[in-house]
Write a protein that binds this DNA or RNA. Structure first.
Ligand SMILES: NC(=O)c1ccc[n+]([C@@H]2O[C@H](COP(=O)([O-])OP(=O)(O)OC[C@H]3O[C@@H](n4cnc5c(N)ncnc54)[C@H](O)[C@@H]3O)[C@@H](O)[C@H]2O)c1
Ligand SMILES: NC(=O)c1ccc[n+]([C@@H]2O[C@H](COP(=O)([O-])OP(=O)(O)OC[C@H]3O[C@@H](n4cnc5c(N)ncnc54)[C@H](O)[C@@H]3O)[C@@H](O)[C@H]2O)c1
Lengths: 208, 208
DNA sequence: GTTACTTTGTGAAATCATTCACAAGCACCC
DNA sequence: GGGTGCTTGTGAATGATTTCACAAAGTAAC
């Protein structure tokens, strides 16, 4: 299939969230315009985004909420549960481990690792923090696909290399340092300090 | 000035980080190519990004690390300290409150608010969690410019409205719900579940 | 001062993403 | 069953961003 822009995938993910809300409210169908207004985009954008994957609507009527949400789940790979490990059980790692939003979406935390003896042994939402030395062996048996990396910046790249060597498929990095991974591994970063700097820029250039 | 793309601002922020590392290593000058390789972009991109704001380099030599980093700080509005409040002292809010990376960049946490009596009174990194009912009065006296919103999704919009009414300039939203603000307020969202879904998509479509 | 070499700054070209605009399809009603 | 109204799906147009490519400007060496 043709390459899909990241912005499109991000919006699909948003559409799915709105569809689930609509589903909860008992609505059967939804138009591209309704979907658009929720997500702050346009109806043409919604239709274009969906058109990359097929034709899911009925002209004159809109989309079946149920059908479209299950198609989107399929497209996004949310049909199956994903196994996730957290590396670094510090403040942000602990918050992530206890975040219910991940589990609800089918992301199951199957392992948490740290070096600090103070953290090792702690149970976070039913998962016990283990020594980072056990990480490779666990990954070999668990076959986790995704890692959340929440360790200090200095050790982020070495740990990334270990995760890659252990066969991880994707990494979500929270450390404020850019990481390098081979092309078969998907990497994304959440950089909160950078988000604040973008806000700072906007505040300073408000009327420019 | 012409409108600057968000992607450009994001990269400027990254360049600044690399420049600071270079500075720490005692380097005097840096070329667009070196800056690019750190940030995973191209030298032409670096030069184009900078060219929107002026000519900061010397042909044949590159950029003065010191000059460029102070120019970038100025452009990004990092010359002054920013006053930040955190709304919601739960797991993620507490992690944010204790994160050193913000303070290092000039973002000073001047207030933390919650409803839960269990949280109110707690000191997080020297700042005491206060009752959310005090928020408006505090904002009027503190003049904080930025709010970090880390409350449950259900109350995110009402709290946003209160922050906007109290004169906040920018909001960084961590709740997984889209928020609406008037045009003079800058809003950005960090949506971690959505980031994971993008990874999920990538894993499923690896060889597509 | 001249030559050889490096790197910037920037129009022009290419690529990528969004918006427009409308024919085609379907529901509903009489 | 034909007409009316609504909404999709999609090429074409527009707009935005990135990449190219090169003249201009600087350094350094002799
Ligand atoms: N706290 C925040 O709000 C926040 C915000 C943005 C970014 N971050 C980034 O997230 C990362 C973690 O931040 P934090 O605030 O949770 O810090 P933290 O110090 O609370 O947690 C880091 C954890 O990593 C563990 N660790 C260190 N080396 C390790 C190793 N080799 N293997 C396994 N675990 C190891 C530490 O023992 C510690 O528990 C940092 O890179 C930080 O820049 C944090
Ligand atoms: N924990 C995570 O890793 C994580 C990840 C992504 C997104 N989020 C989002 O961040 C938000 C907070 O998550 P959390 O895990 O910290 O939850 P949490 O329940 O630990 O924290 C929420 C806090 O908000 C407070 N609160 C509720 N109503 C309030 C009000 N009206 N005024 C002030 N404070 C109020 C609660 O008392 C609580 O302390 C949620 O929207 C969640 O979806 C969390």
């Amino acid at each position: 299939m043709k390459h899909i822009a990241e912005s499109t995938v991000r919006r699909l993910s948003l559409y799915l969230r709105f569809l689930e809300e609509f589903e909860a409210h008992g609505h059967q169908t939804i138009s591209s315009g309704e979907l658009a207004s929720q997500g702050g985009t346009t109806s043409a954008q919604v239709r274009k985004d969906l058109s990359f994957f097929g034709s899911f609507g009925k002209r004159g009527l809109g989309y079946s909420v149920n059908d479209l949400s299950s198609r989107l789940r399929e497209i996004l790979g949310l049909g199956r549960p994903w196994k996730v490990v957290i590396v670094g059980a510090g403040k942000i790692g602990a918050a992530l481990a206890q975040y219910r939003g991940f589990r609800e979406r089918g992301f199951r935390i199957v392992g948490i690792y740290d070096v600090d003896p103070q953290s090792i042994g702690l149970a976070l939402d039913g998962v016990t923090v283990r020594d980072q030395r056990d990480m490779e062996a666990d990954l070999a048996s668990l076959h986790a696909e995704i890692a959340l990396l929440s360790v200090p910046a200095e050790v982020a790249q070495p740990l990334t290399d270990r995760l890659v060597a252990a066969g991880i498929g994707a990494i979500l990095n929270f450390a404020s340092t850019p990481l390098h991974v081979p092309p078969h591994v998907t990497l994304r970063s959440v950089n909160m300090a950078l988000e604040l700097e973008i806000l700072s820029y906007a505040l300073v250039n408000r009327d420019a």
